[in-house]
């Protein structure tokens, strides 16, 4: 298999999935003749720009209500994902474990975060919303830095309420989005220079995809705002705790959103809204 046989089909992922299904094979057949099996920069650029252009056209044709639902779902997912990873990170921090809290506090907080995340992922924002009140007494009772997760949970709960209370079917998101908190967890372990490179790549992807799809831009604004606030408060509260060092970085907010965009642009974990006409 030549490089062209691998690279061109991979670049088709820049296109919306439905467009690639309808026209992808025909485009690749034409490309096989025009490029004669070579990878040409002109063709690579043409596919990337063509894909983003098609995504923008598809975005414009999406109903406005579906765009808001999708943005609320993405924003809530990202915040719940960060909340989940933060609660795990805090639970594993020796400083936190030595704070004299009941041992069941952290696993229970993590289990609640995971449940809310999974329920929203599978299109059950109402069930996730019902779990939310159980988190608050738990977080407040601990009177520890974990209480800061309320900062993340409250806007996420607002997103859940929006999705649960409006009279439209909830968007469902593929299990692939579980990668978001997992990748965030992995990013926390990266040494600083690598972390900086990861942020650069995700930020560039963010700008590209947000320019194409309004719902990502709509989701990015509250998520970046809330995360910037979260990490600022964490910085002044936790100081130099070992975990807080990796949690603090304000750019992590951008990286989280960028990770989601990266996954979306990879084309295989896209949110699908049942309110969008097929």
């Amino acid at each position: 298999m030549s490089a062209a046989d691998r690279i061109y089909p991979a670049l088709l992922r820049a296109y919306p999935r439905a467009w690639a299904a309808a026209h992808g094979n025909e485009l690749l057949a034409t490309l096989a003749f025009s490029s004669q099996g070579r990878v040409l920069p002109r063709e690579v650029t043409g596919l990337l720009l063509g894909g983003f252009h098609q995504r923008r056209l598809e975005d414009r044709s999406r109903p406005r209500a579906a765009t808001f639902d999708s943005a609320a779902c993405l924003a809530a997912l990202l915040l719940l994902g960060v909340s989940l990873m933060s609660s795990i990170a805090i639970a594993l921090d020796p400083v936190m474990l030595g704070a004299g809290l009941p041992p069941w506090t952290f696993p229970l907080a993590t289990l609640l975060s995971l449940s809310k995340f999974a329920l929203l992922l599978r299109g059950h924002p109402g069930a996730a919303l019902l779990l939310a009140p159980f988190s608050y007494p738990l977080l407040l009772a601990t009177a520890s830095p974990i209480i800061l997760l309320i900062w993340l949970d409250t806007p996420a709960v607002a997103g859940l309420a929006w999705l649960a209370l409006r009279r439209r079917p909830a968007p469902t998101v593929s299990w692939g989005w579980m990668l978001v908190p997992l990748m965030l967890g992995a990013a926390m372990l990266l040494p600083f220079p690598l972390f900086g490179i990861a942020i650069g790549i995700t930020l560039a992807t963010t700008l590209l995809v947000a320019a194409c799809e309004v719902r990502f831009a709509l989701a990015a604004v509250p998520v970046c705002f809330v995360l910037a606030g979260y990490w600022t408060v964490t910085y002044f509260t936790l100081g130099t705790s070992s975990v807080s060092q990796s949690l603090l970085h304000p750019a992590m907010g951008l990286a989280v959103v960028g990770l989601a965009f990266l996954l979306r642009s990879a084309g295989n974990v896209s949110p699908r809204s049942s309110t969008t006409p097929r």
Binding site: W19, H23, E26, L27, A29, T30, L31, F33, S34, S35, L40, R42, E43, T45, G46, L47, L48, L49, G50, G51, H53, Q54
Partner: peptide, 28 residues
């Protein structure tokens, strides 16, 4: 598709060389 690419190149005396992505965007 491929015949259109060749014809465009010929009609424009080699000046307009469309990439395949650009062609399919225009066709759409």
């Amino acid at each position: 598709g491929y015949a259109i690419l060749k014809q465009v190149l010929e009609l424009s005396d080699g000046r307009v060389r469309l990439s395949t992505g650009t062609l399919y965007g225009a066709l759409e």
